[in-house]
Structure formats: structure tokens, C-alpha cells
């Protein structure tokens, strides 16, 4: 006779569960954990001293500063843009809406290298605005503005993508209620819309930040790789690695990993702190 066990219809037998878990665990160790460990093992191969020295080196410090500056500009900008775009898409009806949504997704589907090249073609010395920019002594390509622009482009969709489904689900009822009670547009946004999207907004900004600090391809094209000037952390890691300075490369890479861990920790804390238990969709 069969043993009568109370089991959910969607629940698999125990051995299948164990197998799936084992596959996932193996995959995680091989693809995620081992490489992370390698970064720190390689960085500390000759002890803590050389690793710290590689981080304190002026070019490395300049790279870290540039990376933080880039993220500090790109994240607020894209947060603002993301709110505007999500607001437009989720709360209004207009003819070119599907087109706008596709456009928001463009940076995800275009190779970052292509994104970088577009900026070189537009703002570079031989580009459309090249002469005008040189005449007015404005440097964009091979300078900080170009790096910021490329980063903004690549991290465009994160906040908008996080907010659009949430705002669509929430609808416009609460906003309409606020307006009918006499609230101005701005007041409605701050008192009603903003509190309803704050967790998803923070979440999107964290994802945006992680990508902004880690972006390589697009930034590589527009940077020019001038040490201590236009090298971001990922670019600095590459240069050190190509010079066979493995300790230096992995030490800086370790700092990047550290920043990523901070971001992920904040994200996890957000998920726990959030009143409804889960962020976004």
C-alpha cells in the first residue's frame, strides 16, 4: 500500500530536490565563489604589504576616485531619468509608448563597445561636433565627461525597468484621489507617488550603482587609458594585468569586489527592511 503523505501537487520527490540543489550549489561554487576566492588569493600571494601598496599607489587612488565620481554622477542622473520615464510610461497613455519602452531597453541590447564608439563618433576629434568642441576647448572623449556619458548610457535602464512594472501595477487611482482632494501635481508626487515607489527606486539605484562602478567596455573605448587621469578601476585592473603586475591587478580587483559586496549587502538589507518583504517584481 502507498504511504499517504501530505504533499503539495507542485512538490517533487526528495531525491529530485537534492539533485537540483546539488547542481545549483556546484554551479555557484565553480562560476561564482571560486573566481571570487581566486581574486583575494592572488592579491595576497606575496602578503598583505604589496597588496596594500598596490592600492595606495597614486594611479590606483586616481582610478578609484574617478570610478566613485562617475557613479556619483551617473546614479542620481539615471534615478531622475528613470522616475520620469517610468512616470510617463506607467501613468500616461500616448502613441509612441511601445517605442519609448524599446528605447529604454536599448542600452541592454547594444554591446557596450558600440555604445562607446557612438560617443567617439559624435564627440571625438573627427566626430560631428569635434571641431566645435576643439574650438571651444571642451574635452569630452578621452576625458571624464566621456566616461560619465558612456556610464550613464550603459546604466540607463536599471531604475526605469525597476519602476515601470510597479507603477503600472499601482495604477493612477491614488494620484487621482490626491488631485481630487486638492493636491497640486508636485504635492501629489511627493506625498503619494514617491512613498509608494521608494523601495523599488532604491533597489534600482543600487543595481545601477553596481553596474556604473563595474562598467568596462563602453568606458574603455572613450577613456583613452591615461594613467592617473582617465582610468577607472576596471581599466586600471586590465592595465596592471597586461603588465604582468598580478598582485596589483588582483588587489585593485579585490577593492572592486569589496564595493560589489557592499552594494549587495545594502540590497539584501533593503529586501529585509522592506515592509512588503520583496522588492520590485
Amino acid at each position: 500500500m502507498k504511504r499517504a503523505t501530505a504533499r503539495l501537487a507542485t512538490e517533487e520527490p526528495a531525491w529530485i530536490k537534492a539533485l537540483i540543489l546539488a547542481v545549483v550549489a556546484t554551479f555557484l561554487v565553480l562560476v561564482l565563489i571560486l573566481p571570487m576566492v581566486t581574486v583575494f588569493v592572488e592579491a595576497l600571494r606575496r602578503g598583505v604589504g604589496p597588496a596594500l601598496e598596490a592600492i595606495r599607489e597614486p594611479d590606483a587612488v586616481a582610478a578609484m576616485k574617478l570610478t566613485l565620481l562617475t557613479a556619483a554622477i551617473a546614479v542620481p542622473f539615471n534615478a531622475f531619468f528613470g522616475i520620469c520615464a517610468a512616470w510617463a510610461v506607467a501613468k500616461h497613455e500616448f502613441r509612441f509608448k511601445p517605442f519609448l519602452i524599446t528605447l529604454i531597453d536599448l542600452p541592454f541590447s547594444v554591446s557596450p563597445v558600440v555604445a562607446g564608439l557612438i560617443y567617439v563618433l559624435v564627440f571625438g576629434a573627427q566626430g560631428w561636433f569635434g571641431e566645435w568642441l576643439i574650438d571651444h576647448d571642451i574635452k569630452i572623449i578621452f576625458a571624464t565627461p566621456g566616461i560619465v556619458l558612456a556610464t550613464v548610457f550603459v546604466t540607463f535602464p536599471f531604475v526605469a525597468r525597476e519602476l515601470i512594472p510597479l507603477m503600472q501595477e499601482q495604477g493612477v487611482d491614488e494620484e487621482e484621489a490626491a488631485v481630487s482632494l486638492g493636491a497640486s501635481g508636485l504635492r501629489t508626487f511627493w506625498s503619494v507617488t514617491a512613498p509608494n515607489i521608494r523601495w523599488a527606486l532604491l533597489y534600482g539605484m543600487l543595481l545601477c550603482n553596481a553596474r556604473a562602478m563595474g562598467e568596462f567596455g563602453a568606458v574603455s573605448v572613450v577613456s583613452g587609458h591615461i594613467r592617473g587621469m582617465t582610468n577607472t578601476m576596471p581599466l586600471h585592473v586590465e592595465i596592471l594585468y597586461n603588465e604582468y603586475n598580478f598582485v596589483g591587478a588582483f588587489a585593485v580587483a579585490g577593492v572592486l569586489c569589496g564595493l560589489a559586496v557592499v552594494t549587495l549587502t545594502l540590497k539584501t538589507l533593503l529586501e529585509v527592511a522592506q515592509p512588503h518583504g520583496r522588492v520590485g517584481h
Binding site: 487611482d173 487621482e176 490626491a178 488631485v179 481630487s180 512613498p195
Partner: peptide
Amino acid sequence: AADRRVGFVFQQYALFRH
């Protein structure tokens, strides 16, 4: 709507959830 001083009760109530 803000200038009309009407009271509107929505089908799904539309209370401010926060």
C-alpha cells in the same frame, strides 16, 4: 480636479497605502 472641490470615492477606494 484640484480646483473643483468635489469628493470622489473610487471603486477600489484608492486609499493612500502608506
